[in-house]
Design a protein around this nucleic acid. Structure first.
Length: 269
DNA sequence: AATTTCTCCTGCAAGC
DNA sequence: TGCTTGCAGGAGAAAT
């Protein structure tokens, strides 16, 4: 149950639905848009988006939280001090006395408030299938129709949801596919290997608690950083030797994102 | 119409 | 030490 909501930066919250479409969080009655006096009934995820579904007297509301590049969503136990006071934008006080904190220095992330489950489903229909469970056949269908670089397609959340720059590079390395390869050029066998690689990389990363880079920006709900950054085979290793073949790893920009790959292990289809 | 580049913002590390 | 520069996990808008 949410007992109180404190908004320190109004512009990280967007209210969606109704005739107005998308609008900034109003000055008044902010709580009703942010689950105040509601019971959090479920927590869901699709790709990189997290949703809190709340129900109260005013009806149902769904909050999407997206961490962007530098966002954090964590719990502060009852009575504990707020550990990082800077860049805290929204805090939810729960009836247990714990606080749920949304913090995001760069503010590329945010909170979207939707009128309910149906609006959430509509919003998530714009995303591709979740990367953790997408099957090779479905992935293939979504890749064969486009000539763009496979790296670029993997980053497109409407193709599949949940792969970002780190895991795109790691998955392509594991699958042995050059990031500049045209998506439409992948063979059925390439797609099967790629789907397996995406699943393996994401599952290992989850098991390791995620990738926490310099500054310790990513933390889980208990404010603990992950350790998967130590297992990165290519991401952040440009100029270093490939762990498989010792060739020097190369880097280039693809769709504006730094991309690292092994020119020997990763081939054009 | 499909793709890429630009832009938003702050923090950190490297180089001078 | 202190300054400047470049780069960073994302994704929507603008440009091509």
């Amino acid at each position: 149950m949410v007992r109180a909501v404190e908004v320190r930066r109004r512009d990280v919250v967007v209210v969606e639905g109704g005739r107005g479409g998308e609008r900034p969080l109003p000055l008044r009655n902010q709580g009703e848009y942010l689950l105040n006096a509601m019971k959090i009934e479920s927590v869901e995820r699709r790709g990189k988006q997290l949703a809190l579904i709340g129900k109260g007297r005013g009806g149902e509301r769904a909050l999407i939280v997206h961490l962007g590049m530098s966002g954090q969503l964590f719990c502060v136990p009852p009575g504990d001090h707020l550990p990082e006071a800077s860049h805290v934008h929204v805090m939810w006080r729960l009836d247990s006395g714990a606080r749920l904190v949304f913090r995001d220095p760069r503010r590329f992330g945010g909170v979207w408030s939707l009128p309910g489950r149906a609006a959430l489903a509509a919003r998530w229909a714009e995303l591709g299938p979740d990367a953790l469970t997408i099957e090779a056949e479905e992935l293939g269908k979504r890749l064969t129709g486009t000539k763009r670089a496979i790296k670029s397609a993997l980053l497109d959340q409407s193709v599949l949801a949940g792969v970002g720059n780190i895991y795109a590079d790691e998955s392509l390395f594991l699958a042995g596919i050059a990031p500049a390869a045209r998506a439409s050029d992948l063979s059925a066998a390439d797609v099967v290997r790629l789907a397996e690689a995406i699943h393996a990389v994401l599952n290992r990363a989850i098991a390791a608690g995620g990738s926490s880079l310099a500054g310790g920006s990513y933390v889980n709900a208990d404010r603990k950083p992950g350790s998967y950054q130590r297992a990165h085979a290519v991401y952040g290793r440009s100029g270093e030797k490939c762990l498989m073949c010792s060739r020097t790893l190369r880097a280039a920009q693809i769709s504006g994102r730094t991309t690292v790959w092994c020119p020997r292990c990763q081939v054009m289809p």
